[in-house]
């Protein structure tokens, strides 16, 4: 078994800034859906994804609280 930081790790959980969060959202949107964060947010809010439950859409949607 690997040496572990466990309980200590919980205290180290990193909070990202809004700018950083927006970058994360943008990176994920480009990686998974080939679109910008701005385009993703617009499409999400307007319900334009044909399969909003898909893996790639959900991987990006998980980051919405980080970047809006």
């Amino acid at each position: 078994m690997t040496d572990l930081k466990t309980e200590e790790q919980a205290c180290d959980i990193e909070e990202v800034s809004l700018d950083e969060g927006r970058r994360m959202l943008d990176d994920a949107a480009r990686q998974h859906l080939n679109m910008s964060a701005e385009d993703f947010i617009e499409a999400w809010d307007e319900g334009r994804f044909t399969d909003p439950d898909s893996l790639r859409v959900q991987q990006v949607a998980a980051l919405l609280p980080f970047g809006r």
Partner: peptide
């Protein structure tokens, strides 16, 4: 060994917050 990343304001009330592991999708 991944550590959760938390969104801005994660420990404050007043909105939907998020934790993810690992980072950025």
């Amino acid at each position: 060994d991944a550590v959760f990343v938390r969104s801005y304001g994660s420990a404050t009330p007043g909105g939907i917050r998020s934790i993810i592991a690992p980072t950025a999708g």
